[in-house]
């Protein structure tokens, strides 16, 4: 417990294993710059190298989806960027914006607090008005006093999105945020996320295993293959994307191939 608490305050301090972790804080960080930069980032658990030297630059405001099979290291990468991988050995350079927030697969609402205090968790009390506005923005106007348990899974995730945006993040990290939702709710949440990102303009790094979700939301898709970035694809599609478009299908096959599932592409029988 003590170490857990210690982490809370030592987030920007030198990591105990001596690995080079640079977080851009203070005056040298250009205000409103949500860009991130990774140079030779490695992380290993035991003898396994999970990340094998990742070089990556994401410019300010870009919406990037990160695909990968399970075990490819995509969660490890996201947690490294978030600074949540305490005591995981590794090396490399990491530059991330000061204001970084994250949405998890589970909403992680504090069950003993109502919706509004949950949105404002970690914000100064003066941001109350802002919290109410954000709730309206995610479609939960008037639900400030609801208990998290009284909300559906989709609604809980909306609250989590509002909470992630409450600190006006320059970088929004999302770890399969819609993975636990049903298909219909997921479609609604895609639209909501698109709207929110357009309104707040953070840089987004979305981890997902859903190729269609990646193509329909992101401007750029990365495929992680056993600890390295195996594919880095700019999605050059119109704003109103749908899986019926031939260009969408081509990108889909391309990405599925990179994920090693060629068989998923329906081939005409010769």
């Amino acid at each position: 417990m003590a170490s857990i608490l210690g982490r809370l305050t030592s987030r920007f301090a030198a990591e105990p294993d001596g690995r080079d972790r640079r977080v851009s804080v203070g005056p040298q960080a250009a205000e409103s710059d949500g860009s991130i930069e990774l140079r030779g980032l490695t992380r290993n658990f035991g003898d396994d190298d999970i990340l094998k030297g990742i070089d990556l630059t994401i410019p300010d405001g870009q919406f990037v989806a990160l695909l990968g099979r399970s075990g490819s290291g995509k969660s490890t990468l996201l947690r490294a960027i978030a600074g949540l991988d305490h005591n995981v050995p590794g090396s490399g350079l990491l530059r991330v914006p000061e204001r970084t927030s994250m949405v998890f697969q589970d909403s992680r609402l504090l069950p003993w607090q109502r919706v509004l205090p949950n949105v404002l968790y970690g914000q100064p009390r003066s941001r109350r008005r802002h919290g109410i506005d954000l709730l309206a923005e995610v479609g939960l106007a008037g639900r400030e006093k609801s208990w998290p348990k009284g909300l559906s899974g989709g609604e809980q995730q909306r609250v989590a999105l509002a909470r992630a945006l409450a600190g006006e993040p320059q970088l929004l990290l999302a770890d399969e945020p819609f993975g636990a939702l049903d298909a219909l709710t997921r479609i609604k949440m895609h639209a909501l996320l698109r709207t929110l990102v357009q309104a707040h303009r953070p840089t987004v790094l979305l981890v997902t295993h859903d190729v269609d979700e990646a193509i329909s939301l992101a401007q750029r898709v990365l495929v992680l293959q056993s600890g390295r970035i195996g594919r880095d694809l700019i999605i050059d599609l119109p704003e109103d994307r749908n899986p019926a478009q031939p260009a969408f299908q081509r990108t889909r096959h391309d990405l599925l191939a990179a994920l090693g599932v060629d068989a998923a592409a329906p081939q005409p029988v010769p």
Binding site: I4, L8, T9, S101, D106, R108, L110
Partner: peptide, 15 residues
């Protein structure tokens, strides 16, 4: 819950 600890770290809350 460890997940709430992580959340608190991400939200940068004081101890």
């Amino acid at each position: 819950d460890r997940r709430l600890v992580e959340l608190s770290e991400i939200q940068d809350v004081s101890r």
